[in-house]
Amino acid sequence: MDFAYILSRAVAQGLPLLFGSNGEILNEKSGNLNLGIPGIMISGGVAGIVGALVYENSTPNPNGFVGLLVSMICSVSCSLLLSLIYCFLTVTLRANQNVTGLALTIFGSGLGNFYGGSISTILGITNNSIPATAAAYKMPLVPFYDKLGAIGTIFFSHGCMFYIAIAIALISWYVLKKTRTGLSLRAVGENPATADAAGINVTRYKYVATCLGGVIAGFGGLYYAVDYSNGLWDTQSFGDRGWLAVALVIFVVWKPNLAVLGAFLFGGLYIAEIFVPGLTSATKEIFKMLPYIVTIIILITTSLMKKKENQPPASLGLPYFREER
């Protein structure tokens, strides 16, 4: 059994979760408990496939990098649109966040799976694979990674999305922790009235953080769709990854830098059957329960310890209305 290979699979499994949780962290830091993230991930991913497919079918010799660019633009636009729906309903129209989020997940996963499931029928094409684009995504940025031994296999065998995920996580961490923007965003999520009084535009911060978070989460779907599944969408296989990403947010106590490690750990648990000896197809389902169990335990212990820094943002889930009286 090649240990390095297994770890590289764990990393690959973790990447959608990393994108997803990173997006959710930005949402939650602004006070939006966006339960629509799973829906955004699915439609963001399928939008990428649709874009690449349309492009690859439009030209006899598709260029993988054009395909990559097209799929990214499609994914971003789709995630942005869904995030805007959420923002408009919860921030501008002050609809209940939980209800809106769940409606968005119903809509988003429906939209994604609708196009993802019947793509060739809808587009009227026979060829439903995107080999050039998928290859562009999969191309390792470090061509000599196999010379770096195990480390190379684990970390550098991945395509560009790996680096994007890590970069976004680290940038998010840096921005939240070290910049004025991050400070303002944290204040908005903790206490919007105070942020407002300090001259921070609460609505704008909520919109920007939520939309940016949505786009990042959509990248998780995109990676899964075009890289991990080679551009072939199966309506069943994305499964609970969206919710796992939400769980990961709690697991890493709202810290994007920890999310990197957490995502790979969750990813590893997802494929535990490969490396844990003696797992049957039944007990492997129990193994997949672990991330949720661990998350629940974290939720309980952080509530028990009452350490303020590890609690959810104080205004999470609550709408803000200045002229409330």
């Binding site: 400070l183 944290r186 204040a187 903790e190 206490n191 009235a193 105070t194 009084a197 300090a198 104080a314």
Partner: peptide
């Protein structure tokens, strides 16, 4: 303005 109810963020 210094409000009667302080406008401070607890965890900062």
């Amino acid at each position: 303005m210094i409000h009667q109810h302080f406008k401070l963020v607890d965890i900062l």
